[in-house]
Design a protein around this nucleic acid. Sequence first.
DNA 1: AGTTTCGGCGCC
DNA 2: AAAGGGCGCCGAAACT
Length: 557
Amino acid sequence: MELAPLGPDGLPAGPVREEADLAEAVRSRPDVTRWVWRSTAEVYPRLLAAGVRVERCYDIEDAETLLLGHEGRHGEPRSAAAALARLRGGPVPPDPPQRSAAPGAQSSLFEPQGVGLPLADLLAVYAEQQRRHERTAHPDRMRLLTAAESAGMLVAAEMNRAGLPWSADVHRRVLHELLGERYAGGGEPRRLAELADEVSAAFGRRVRPDLPADVVKAFARAGIKVGSTRRWELRSVDHPAVEPLLEYKKLYRIWVAHGWSWLQDWVRDGRFRPEFLAGGTVTGRWVTNGGGALQIPKVIRRAVVADPGWRLVVADADQMEPRVLAAISRDPGLMEVAGRESDLYQSVSDRAFSGDRAQAKLAVLGAVYGQTSGDGLKNLAALRRRFPRAVAYVDEAARAGEEGRLVRTWLGRTCPPAAGAAEDAAEEAGLPQDDPAEHPAGGPAGQSADQGWMPGYASGNSRARGRFARNFVVQGSAADWALLLLAGLRRACRDMAAELVFFQHDEVIVHCPQDEAETVVEAIREAAELAGRLTFGETPVRFPFTTAVVECYADAK
DNA sequence: AGTTTCGGCGCC
DNA sequence: AAAGGGCGCCGAAACT
């Protein structure tokens, strides 16, 4: 391994040294407070395995992704080698196939030999990245973004190593309560088989409730036309098969996605070990690989149990998205209600919906998600009157998205131009459309992208792109803030036994000895407020959390 | 037979 | 007309 100390300008401030052992090198340099490396995901797990943590890092390939996005060059190869090629003017190598998409004190840069670039080349890329930060719309924010995302990479790697405390016994008990006995041969458990029989009995013929086509046909024979078997549509259907059918679907879901085989696959030694991927989505939200860690059903959370003598500190941000909208739009009225820790939806409803909290919440979420029909529209008008700048902010984002312009989060994460933007632009320019692959659900090439219904923002539907961009600025800026929260919380836990074990968009779980719990609760509060100030600058907006100290995740709510 | 898409649901 | 955003996961269906 080569290693070089960096000066404050990011350039080498000392000689390059050869180090045989990565972990030992890090251990022997406690003066280094920020390690610059090509890829956290490739370097840091090895360090953790050797029992070494680092305080801060700078992930060059992750920064490259964010910088390329900001420059409107999404999709260009993001590897350090590609960045170097662009810098030197050579042929740009494509990214290796299965890589995931996302991935004052003295600093130090290093690169494992034989894996990536020579240190001098990596250093050149790094130095150029520093210059590219300066050329962004808000260099200070962009620096904060790449730093925060790098911190997120560290947190993710540490969470992957820690795992989520999981009681297989409790899980099995829950499964048995819900689903009944398992039958030999891997077929449906007892309760599902019973419900399937009830459904069939109600229809008077054999119907498989797990086959939507079968169910639609059965309803048609009963004289009831249903367009799908979605819960919301079936709920209003008057037929004796509906109740057991809905119950079946609910339990079936538990069985296939979080049942016994899930337990077998994902839980070992008292820990559920999904792979968290920081920045795995375009909005900056995290994703997980395997185990559906971000979709653990509420009933299954009973299996998340702290070690003996330990506790789970479960913390959930209160009304995060409207608070973020207040912070980024600077709407005076919304900032005022978001400046209180009390229920924001209640405050909004007091001002604009004569006390109807549910309506206020629908209106706010409708504005953020781009609702186009139903009560949302009526409510949106009331919202617009009282909080004009907030609504205008997301409206402008939607317009930009529809027109194919770049849209950014508060810190500068940039929305990729939707797949449909180019062809729409070409269409406006009168160019032919000849790639049917771009129109998966559309008609013949050349047909207006807005005709017909096409799911997904990347389908060539400009309204869908508008909704995506509208949501992107809020969801993405919330993700910006959440990264800073995680970074602060991680630092606060540094000298405790407490460890972050779970993160889900606006919710964190810290696993800690009982006597550290109150300290952790306070640390979360402080980290949230600090994250607010760091991310959005001086703002009256508060970011309160609901925290619970529990032994079992399911007891947190 | 292997791969991709669809339908439906879980979470935020 | 409940056609609002982001995801992952699973089996079945559809495709090659």
